[in-house]
């Protein structure tokens, strides 16, 4: 759907490029994620591919046509959910939604969307009286109200409690299952791991790795079995590689001879892999 080739971008007041020649593809019908710490270039990349920032170098193709050749009708096909609330606070939720709804040719059923995010009962409240979580949920309604083919979500669950985060994630999956394409930027590993078909690790404006979370775990992760057992009144633990575990004599010995307290397989998390690949923590600390 989107093909980005050797994309570079520099803000007017900066000396250095903030995006340093990145290339990636967002395939139709997939959820593609950008995982990286703050300042990595995630939001800048999103601003470029939603045509807010224009003076970039490199090539971006949307449906095999140069992005620069699209006029504002491009926005009929996409929905954007911003990280921060973007509503008129002295207007009600429905007044906000109705204002934007009329600017598009295609209109989604607002009532069902509002009910889905749990805001229908509060539709006539001023947005200024909403909690941050409610405003973020209203952002998603705003992004979906033109029946977009592609969704851009910037830190979609940031500031949401686990229940509402789950509702939003379910809605994103439903959107994908109905044929939609999604681009997510996030620094929250769990969002990317649970939602994305493919993920790009981005640090300092460079993509360090792109693949599915599963493939990344297979390639970079260590698959182990961790055993905690008692010996001489003390609790000891030992890690064994999952490969050929049935032939590992030490493992078999412990399992047969010792009092086992816990035993479980351990997969490396996406965050661990991110750190391993990039040398940077998601909370921006260098290792």
């Amino acid at each position: 759907m989107f093909k980005v080739n050797n994309l570079k971008f520099k803000y007017k007041n900066n000396k250095e490029d903030v995006i340093k020649g990145i290339s990636f593809e967002i395939k139709e019908g997939e959820i593609f994620g950008f995982l990286g710490p703050s300042g990595a270039g995630k939001s800048t990349t999103q601003k470029i591919i939603i045509k807010i920032l224009e003076d970039y170098q490199g090539e971006i193709k949307y449906k095999d046509k140069d992005l620069k050749e699209y006029n504002n009708d491009f926005y009929e096909e996409i929905g954007v959910s911003f990280e921060m609330p973007i509503h008129f606070s002295k207007m009600t939720a429905m007044e906000n939604i109705n204002f934007f709804l009329k600017l598009y040719k295609n209109n989604e059923d607002v009532e069902s969307l509002m009910k889905r995010v749990g805001l229908w009962e509060d539709r006539d409240k001023l947005v200024g009286e909403f909690s941050k979580g409610m405003k973020i949920r209203l952002n998603l309604v705003r992004a979906l109200l033109n029946k977009p083919k592609m969704l851009f979500l910037d830190e979609p669950t940031n500031g949401l409690d686990p229940t509402n985060a789950m509702i939003l994630k379910d809605m994103i999956r439903e959107f994908k299952n109905q044929g939609g394409t999604v681009f997510i930027t996030s620094h929250i590993m769990a969002d990317i791991d649970q939602l994305c078909d493919r993920v790009a690790f981005i640090v300092n404006g460079e993509i360090k790795e792109i693949d599915s979370p599963r493939n990344l775990k297979i390639r970079y992760g260590k698959r182990v079995v961790l055993v905690e057992y008692k010996e001489d009144g003390k609790t000891l633990s030992k890690e064994f590689p999952l490969e050929q575990i049935g032939k590992n004599q030490e493992f078999i010995h412990i399992v047969q001879e010792k009092e086992i307290e816990t035993i479980h397989s351990g997969e490396t998390t996406l965050e661990d892999i991110f750190i391993k690949v990039t040398g940077v923590k998601l909370d921006n600390e260098n290792l």
């Binding site: 807010i52 911003f82 973007i86 008129f88 600017l103 598009y104």
Partner: peptide, 14 residues
């Protein structure tokens, strides 16, 4: 203050 212009910028309006 309310960042509403961001939301208008991603609509078909010029």
């Amino acid at each position: 203050k309310e960042s509403t212009l961001s939301s208008v910028l991603v609509t078909p309006v010029t």
